[in-house]
Design a protein around this nucleic acid. Sequence first.
DNA 1: CCAATTTGTGCAACAATATAACATTTCATC
DNA 2: GATGAAATGTTATATTGTTGCACAAATTGG
Lengths: 162, 162
Amino acid sequence: MITNSRVAYQQHDHLRCQNAALQQARTLCVREKVRLTPIREAVLCMIWQSHRPLGAYKLIDQLSEAGGKRMLPPTVYRALDFLLGLGLIHRIATLNAFIGCPFPGSPHSDVFLVCRLCGSAAECSVDTVNSAIVATAQRAGFQIESQAVEVTGLCPLCRDGS
Amino acid sequence: MITNSRVAYQQHDHLRCQNAALQQARTLCVREKVRLTPIREAVLCMIWQSHRPLGAYKLIDQLSEAGGKRMLPPTVYRALDFLLGLGLIHRIATLNAFIGCPFPGSPHSDVFLVCRLCGSAAECSVDTVNSAIVATAQRAGFQIESQAVEVTGLCPLCRDGS
DNA sequence: CCAATTTGTGCAACAATATAACATTTCATC
DNA sequence: GATGAAATGTTATATTGTTGCACAAATTGG
């Protein structure tokens, strides 16, 4: 199992995450021969700054404030689509929100553990879950294209009332 | 594994499904000492008639047409909340749509196989998926309250180009 | 049965999320 | 620099979901 659940639930150096993510993104974009434009980079950074699932309109507000210029929905949604396409971010359907992918590039099926109280979302890549889903689809004759596994509940910290 | 994947992908007697679901709903409401009002019943029926995930506003349109009177969003959303609470229907987060639960009452974790082309959504209750998710959450110290496992792709029929 | 209370519905406005359509600019390449 | 493709700007609109309050209907407890 690959997971960021430790780090997701604790205070840590966000800036470090952000920089690491940005570096990975740049590398990936070079490899894929696509352009990480200023807008796209700004969106990715803002998502990593939040470090929890961020709604598109919150993103717009924060980018507008940070950039000094009002950013409009289509601009941001286009950047989001770009980043989603590269696997640099994920969309959490149950929250209508976006979060940075801690291990882009590595092919993985994701389980998100979304805390109802603090809003954190840890990402786990679990072979057992994945293979169980694949087996299920196979038995039904269903051809998988993508999947969303989103678990809602209480993270370790909120559960202990902290 | 419990699943309705056979029936979900084939033509069959929808009216039969609808009636069975309605009967189950009545029984459940009696047991839970809650009221299956005409509106709630109408919403449940309409969802079963569609037999695939149905968006709230499509539901509103169809109910308005069928009932002769314009139904407004809050009315329908309240009925949906009621039905969701009883487990009589599910919400598919990736589609913003609702579908009838073929086995309400039986505690189950659901896997939905959602076809990108025809819009069908088969529901499977798979122990292996469920236990893998539970184990994952446990390792992370996460307390599960609900979960959404939604697989998107091609159903057997659409895959074969039919 | 009646009053009190809870529960459900009608209605108007609005909030949040996402996309369409088309003009304009920027960029890579020739 | 001219050209075509990719990205962005801009306006408008579509889709999904909620709030708040007034009214009605059902349930409960005398």
